[in-house]
Design a protein around this nucleic acid. Structure first.
Lengths: 345, 345
DNA sequence: CTGTTAGCGCTTTCAG
DNA sequence: CTGAAAGCGCTAACAG
C-alpha cells in the first residue's frame, strides 16, 4: 500500500532500485545490505532489521544476474525431451521442487533426440554459467560431450545406468532389469507368446536396454522369440493401437503385448475395446511407466513403476551434494522399480 | 578433436576463457569480438572470420549473465501450474519453441494455485531481470500483482480473457464461451439432464467461467439446472470416476456428464466401463482440452479443443512484439476453440 | 560488526 | 570499421 509508485509506468526498465539505494536509505554501505540478505549472522540484529525493513518497504529484489557473476551461479540448467506424451513432467516437477528448496532455479531447454539439437541445447545452457546441468534423454553426441568435458560443470544424467560410463554422474534405473523382470513376470503368469512394442530405439539406449532385457528374458525362459514379435511405432496412443494391429496380424495367436511405454499400452487397450476383445483373455497388455491413468484405466494396467519424481529430486540432490563438496568422484545412483500387477495382464 | 583440454578437470570453475582471451588470440580488442558475435555487419568480413574462427577453435561460449547485465536480458520468466496431469506441457512446448527461435531462454518456476506460492514465484522470477514474464494460472493475488505493476516488466497472462483486466497483456480463450458452446452442443444432441464436473473452482477464474458458461447455457436452453448436478473433485482420473458415481447417485436419470477437463472425462469413461455402462447410450461423457488420448480413447471423446500449443507460442510472440516496441498498449488476444464431436456424447 | 576496494565479463557510449 | 574508457549490480577479500 505504501509502496511508492516510482518512475514511468511500464516502459522504463531501469527504474528498479538497487542495493546502493537501499544502503543509502538506511545509512550503511552496500555490502552490509548484501550481508543482511545472504549472511544475516554477520550483521548486528539491529542493523539487520533496519536493512530488511527498508528492503521490504522499497520492494527491492536483488539482481540474481549480478550475484551469479561472482560466486557460482544459482541456476541449474536442464535439458529434457519433449514434454508432451511422457512422464517427463513428473521428473521436471521433482527437480523443480528440490531445486527451489535450495534456492536454485531451473533453466529449461527442450531437446529432441537429435545430436544437433543436443549440442545447441548444451551450448545455450552453458552460456548461463549454471552451477550444474541435468540432462535427460541425452544421447552423448561427440560435440556435446566434448562441450561438457571442457565445461568443467557438474553434470547429472538421468538415464540408463547399465554398462554406460556417465560423463560425470548419473541417476536412473536399469532398463534392462525392468524389462527383463516384466517379461519374466508375464511368463510366470503363463503367457508364452509375448510381443514387444517400442518407439524407435535407434540412438536411445534406454529403449535399447528394454528391448535387450525382453529378448534376454525370452531366451532364458525358453520362450519362442522372433524378431517379428517386435515393432516400432511413434510415441502416441495411436502408435500403440497400430502396434496391436500389426502384431496380431503377424501372429494371430499372440497372447500379450508388452509396451515400452504406458502411452502405447493405453492406446493398445483402446484398440482392444474397439475390436471387442476381452482383456486379458483375448489379449493381455502390459505397459511401462505407471502413469496416473494406469491404475484407473479399464482394465487397470499391469506396468513397471519407475520413480520418476524421485529421479528428478535425486538428480538435483546429487548435484547439490557435489556443489557442497561432499562428493568428488563420479557416482551412479540406481533407483529401484516395481512390477505393478493389475488386471490387464 | 583439436580442442585443447585446459586446466584442471571438473573442479575449477574459472578455467573457461572469455572475450578478452579470444581478442588477444586474434589481436583485436574485446569489443570487436563482441561485435563479431552480435552485430556482424559492423565488422569487416575478414576480421569477422578470424574472430569467429578463434571462437570456434577455443570453444568459447559467451557469458549470458554478463550480457544481460547491460541491455535487456534474454530470459523469459514463466510461471506454470503443476505440470502433472494437464495440457500445460503443450503450452510450455509452444513457448519454448517460439522463445528459442528468437534466442530467448525460458526460466521456469512452478506455481500452484495459492497466493503465497504465487508471490514467491514472481519474486524469484523478477530477480533474474527477465525481459518479460509469462504467467499461467495466475490468480492475481494482491502482493504479486503489486510486484508486477512495480516491476515495469512486460507481462503476458495466459488465462481467462472474459471480463478481466489483465495486468498488461493476455492470451487465452473465453472459458465461458467454450463451456456455453459445449453445453449447447450437448443439448442440441437431445440431452436434457447434463451434469457438470470440475476441480475446485475457488480462486480459479478459468473454471469459474466454465461453470458459469454451463449454467447460463442450461438456463438459456430452458433445461433444468440444480446445484446438485455439479460436483468438484480433484484433478485426477480417479476424480473423474468419483464424480460419475456421485452424480448418478444424486440423479439416477442423468444422461451426460460434462467434465471441465479431459483428465476427468477419461476417468469417468473408465468408470463406465467398470460399471458395464454403454457410452453414450447409458451415459454420455464430454471433456475439455482435447488431449492426445481423447481421439484414441474408446469410445473417442467429445471435447473442447483449445489451442494450447498456439497459446504458448502466441504469448511469447506478444511479448517479443512489445519488446521490439511494436505495441505499447495493453492487448488481449483471444484464440479460437473448437467443439470436437466424437462418439462419447 | 562494518566499510573500502576491486572486479566478475560483457557492452554502451564516445572517439578516432 | 575499430578501439578506450566506463560501468551494469553485486560480493570476495581485505582492512579497520
Amino acid at each position: 500500500m505504501d509502496t511508492p509508485q516510482r518512475g514511468s509506468p511500464r516502459s522504463a526498465k531501469g527504474n528498479r532500485l538497487g542495493m546502493r539505494e537501499i544502503a543509502r536509505l538506511v545509512g550503511v554501505s552496500p555490502i552490509t545490505v548484501s550481508r543482511a540478505l545472504n549472511d544475516p549472522d554477520k550483521v548486528s540484529p539491529e542493523t539487520r532489521d533496519r536493512v530488511l525493513g527498508a528492503i521490504e518497504r522499497a520492494g527491492f529484489i536483488p539482481n540474481q544476474l549480478a550475484s551469479s557473476m561472482r560466486g557460482p551461479g544459482r541456476i541449474i540448467g536442464t535439458m529434457v525431451p519433449p514434454l508432451i506424451n511422457s512422464g517427463i513432467a513428473e521428473q521436471v516437477q521433482g527437480m523443480s521442487d528440490e531445486a527451489l528448496l535450495s534456492g536454485y532455479q531451473l533453466l529449461l531447454v527442450q531437446g529432441d533426440f537429435t545430436a544437433a539439437a543436443e549440442e545447441k541445447a548444451v551450448r545455450s545452457l552453458l552460456g548461463w554459467r549454471p552451477a550444474g546441468l541435468i540432462l535427460q534423454a541425452f544421447v552423448q553426441s561427440a560435440p556435446a560431450r566434448q562441450l561438457l568435458v571442457d565445461g568443467a560443470v557438474p553434470v547429472v544424467e538421468i538415464s540408463e545406468i547399465r554398462g554406460k560410463r556417465p560423463i560425470d554422474m548419473a541417476v536412473g534405473v536399469s532398463n534392462f532389469e525392468t524389462a527383463y523382470a516384466m517379461t519374466a513376470h508375464l511368463a510366470s503368469k503363463g503367457y508364452k507368446r509375448i510381443g514387444f512394442v517400442s518407439t524407435p530405439v535407434h540412438g536411445n539406449d534406454r529403449l535399447q536396454q528394454r528391448r535387450i532385457g525382453y529378448r534376454q528374458a525370452m531366451k532364458d525362459l525358453g520362450l519362442r522369440h522372433k524378431v517379428d514379435l517386435e515393432v516400432e511405432v511413434t510415441l502416441t496412443h495411436q502408435g500403440g493401437a497400430e502396434a496391436l494391429r500389426l502384431l496380431t496380424q503377424r501372429d494371430p495367436k499372440l497372447e500379450v503385448v508388452f509396451c515400452s511405454s504406458d502411452t502405447l499400452a493405453i492406446g493398445a487397450v483402446q484398440e482392444c475395446h474397439r475390436l471387442g476383445w476381452k482383456i486379458p483373455e483375448r489379449m493381455a497388455i502390459a505397459g511401462y511407466g505407471d502413469v496416473d491413468l494406469a491404475a484407473q484405466l479399464y482394465p487397470s494396467l499391469t506396468t513397471v513403476r519407475v520413480p520418476r519424481y524421485e529421479m528428478g529430486r535425486e538428480a538435483v540432490r546429487q548435484l547439490l551434494r557435489r556443489l557442497a563438496g561432499e562428493t568428488r568422484s563420479s557416482t551412479i545412483i540406481s533407483l529401484g522399480f516395481e512390477i505393478i500387477d493389475r488386471d490387464s495382464a
